[in-house]
Simulated assay, not measured.
Amino acid sequence: MLLTVARVGRPHGLRGEVALDVRTDVPQERLVVGARFVTEPAAAGPLEIAHVREAQGRWYVTFAQADDRTAAEGLRGVELLVDSDEDTDDDDDGWYPHELAGLRAEHVADGRPLGEVVGLEHLPAHDVLVLREPDGARTLVPFVEAIVPVVDVAGGRVVLDPPGGLLAADAANLVVSDETRGTGEEA
């Protein structure tokens, strides 16, 4: 299985350098001169790193196949991939999207089913689980320990402690409650 190491961002300068949106916990090991990556889309690669630097927490690379700004702009959005068989990271606190997809989501309080994890999205602030609720609603759940305290891949589940209103079912219950409460006034 192929895993995303980084996504190519905007060009930086005129000589083909690009910013990377890094998806690995070990960029200093993955992003080295001479590293070759298969790509998504496949037609964009393979790509080989010719130059790499890190500045203020951002990673920048130049690929041997793109030595000017125009060529670099053509790589924007391309994902750099590695074979997961090469990945020996045993991080207990990190999961790949393919490990999370299909896990059932349960409520922390009573274990009731909340839906199924159908994906993982990388947003600027933090990752989010894509949850398909029982009614089919698609909900983005912040993938932070306070809301997702348990990830049990072997057990096939994640446990959620969602704040009120996060899930579509919560919002539906609020509307029903407001409609049935009434105003208490007689006409």
Rank of each mutant, 00 (worst) to 15 (best):
A105S: 03
S177H: 12
P142G: 10
H12W: 08
H126K: 06
V175A: 13
E186V: 15
G74H: 10
D93S: 06
P41I: 07
L103H: 01
Y60P: 00
V26G: 04
D90K: 10
Y96C: 07
V128N: 11
V144E: 11
T62L: 08
W95H: 04
T180M: 12
E99S: 11
P149C: 07
H12P: 00
Q28G: 05
H51L: 10
V175P: 01
D110Y: 06
G182H: 02
L100S: 03
T70N: 04
S84R: 14
D91L: 09
R138Y: 11
T39E: 03
R53V: 01
G156P: 02
F143Q: 05
D91W: 08
D152V: 03
G34M: 06
R23Y: 12
E86R: 09
G34H: 02
Q28W: 13
V150R: 05
L103P: 00
L120W: 10
L167E: 04
V52Q: 08
D25I: 09
E133I: 12
E186R: 13
R30C: 02
D67I: 08
V151Y: 00
V151S: 00
F63A: 04
D83I: 04
R69S: 13
V148L: 00
V108I: 14
A172Q: 09
G74D: 09
D87W: 12
G77S: 08
V18W: 00
G182C: 01
T183D: 14
R15W: 11
A35I: 07
A6S: 07
Y96Q: 14
V22F: 04
F63H: 02
D135K: 11
R181N: 03
T183W: 12
R58E: 13
A169V: 14
